[in-house]
Simulated scan of single mutants.
Amino acid sequence: MTLLLMAAGSGSRYGKLKQFDDLGPNGEFLMEFGIYDALKNGFDHIVLITKKENVSLAEDHLRPRIPANIKLDVLAQEITDLPEGCSFSGERKKPWGTAHAVWTARNVINGPFAVLNADDFYGQSAYANAANFAREHNNDNTFALVGYTLKDTLSEHGSVSRGVCQVNGDDLVSVDERLKLEPKDGKVLDLDSGNEYTGDEQVSMNFWVCQPSIFEKIESEFRNFLADENLATTSELYIPKTVQEMLQAGEIKVKVVPSGGDWFGVTYASDREKAVANLQEKTDAGKYPSPLWPKQ
C-alpha cells in the first residue's frame, strides 16, 4: 500500500517551511511520525510531493532514516506539469492545488493509496483504519474519507479552513469547504458565511483513501480548468471537489471512516510549541521510540 504525503505548501502563516521543521524530540519532521504509523500498518511505499527546490532536502533527510526495504519516491509538484496537449501562458506562483499534487504521482502509484497533509498529525489509529479499508477495497471503486470531529480540529491562534461533511450513516454525501472557522461561545462560527456549527460535525482533514481512477478524473478536470483563463490564473484544484464530483456522478462510493484518534496541526507559528510538546508527550508515553528510527 502507498502513502502519499503532500508537502508542497509554502507555510505563509507559519513563517517557514513547516513540513520540514524539526518538531520531534530528536529533530524529526512531523511527517515522520505519520510515516512511522503507516509502516506499522502495512504501508510499504511512501510518496512525498513537494516543491522542486525541496526534493533533495526531503530525500537526504528521509532515505537514511526509513527502512531500506520501503520504497520512497520524492516528486516535485511543478506548474509546468500539464496534461498532454495543454499549455498555460499566464503568470502563476502558487502550485495548482492538492488535486494536482495527487496527479503528480500518477506514474508511480497503481493501487489503492492514502493521501494526506505532511504538516498534520493524524493519530495512530487513523492509519490502522485507513489500511484496513484499503485492504478490504483493493479491487473496487470505493473511496474513503478519514473523518474527524470539527471541535477537535480548531486552532487557538486563528481561523482555520475545514471541509464540513454531510454524512448518511457511513456514506459521504457532500463536503462543504469552509475557510474561516473559529470557536465562539461553545460553538463554531464560519466568519465568511456566518454559518454556525455545533462542533460535533464530521470534517475532512484531507486524509483520503483513493483508487487510481482518481488520476484520470483529475486530468479531465485539469483540462477544463486550464481552458478557463480566470480559473487557471487565480484558483486551484482541490481533492474534495474532485472526489465530490466523482461521487455525484455515481462513479464512486465514499465511506467515512472514523479516525479513532487525536489530530493536531501547525498552521500558525504559535502552534509550534504545542506540537513539540505533544510529540514529546507521546514519545515519553512510549507510543513512539526515541529516536524514532533505528540506525541502519
Score class of each variant (00 low, 15 high):
residue 34 G to M: 07
residue 34 G to V: 10
residue 34 G to W: 02
residue 36 Y to M: 02
residue 36 Y to F: 08
residue 43 F to P: 01
residue 43 F to G: 01
residue 44 D to V: 01
residue 45 H to C: 00
residue 45 H to K: 03
residue 46 I to W: 00
residue 48 L to E: 06
residue 49 I to A: 08
residue 53 E to K: 12
residue 56 S to Y: 05
residue 58 A to V: 08
residue 60 D to R: 11
residue 63 R to W: 06
residue 63 R to A: 09
residue 65 R to Y: 13
residue 66 I to S: 01
residue 66 I to R: 01
residue 69 N to L: 06
residue 70 I to H: 00
residue 71 K to G: 01
residue 71 K to D: 07
residue 72 L to W: 09
residue 72 L to Q: 04
residue 73 D to Q: 06
residue 74 V to E: 09
residue 74 V to T: 15
residue 75 L to I: 07
residue 75 L to S: 02
residue 75 L to D: 08
residue 76 A to T: 00
residue 79 I to C: 07
residue 79 I to H: 13
residue 80 T to M: 15
residue 80 T to K: 12
residue 82 L to D: 08
residue 83 P to K: 13
residue 86 C to Y: 07
residue 91 E to P: 03
residue 92 R to P: 02
residue 93 K to D: 06
residue 94 K to F: 13
residue 95 P to D: 03
residue 97 G to P: 11
residue 98 T to W: 13
residue 99 A to V: 14
residue 100 H to Y: 07
residue 101 A to D: 10
residue 101 A to F: 15
residue 102 V to A: 13
residue 102 V to T: 07
residue 103 W to L: 12
residue 105 A to F: 06
residue 105 A to E: 12
residue 105 A to N: 06
residue 107 N to P: 02
residue 110 N to V: 04
residue 112 P to T: 09
residue 113 F to R: 06
residue 114 A to E: 04
residue 115 V to G: 02
residue 117 N to T: 03
residue 119 D to C: 03
residue 120 D to K: 05
residue 120 D to H: 13
residue 121 F to W: 08
residue 121 F to A: 02
residue 122 Y to G: 05
residue 123 G to Q: 00
residue 124 Q to Y: 08
residue 126 A to M: 03
residue 128 A to E: 09
residue 129 N to A: 09
residue 130 A to P: 00
residue 132 N to D: 10
residue 132 N to A: 14
residue 134 A to H: 06
residue 134 A to L: 15
residue 136 E to A: 14
residue 137 H to K: 00
residue 138 N to H: 15
residue 139 N to R: 14
residue 139 N to L: 15
residue 146 V to E: 02
residue 147 G to K: 15
residue 147 G to H: 05
residue 148 Y to E: 14
residue 151 K to H: 11
residue 151 K to Q: 05
residue 151 K to M: 00
residue 152 D to A: 13
residue 153 T to P: 14
residue 157 H to K: 10
residue 158 G to S: 04
residue 160 V to Y: 03
residue 160 V to W: 09
residue 163 G to I: 06
residue 167 V to E: 04
residue 168 N to R: 14
residue 169 G to K: 12
residue 169 G to F: 11
residue 172 L to I: 09
residue 172 L to A: 12
residue 172 L to H: 04
residue 173 V to M: 14
residue 174 S to D: 14
residue 176 D to Q: 10
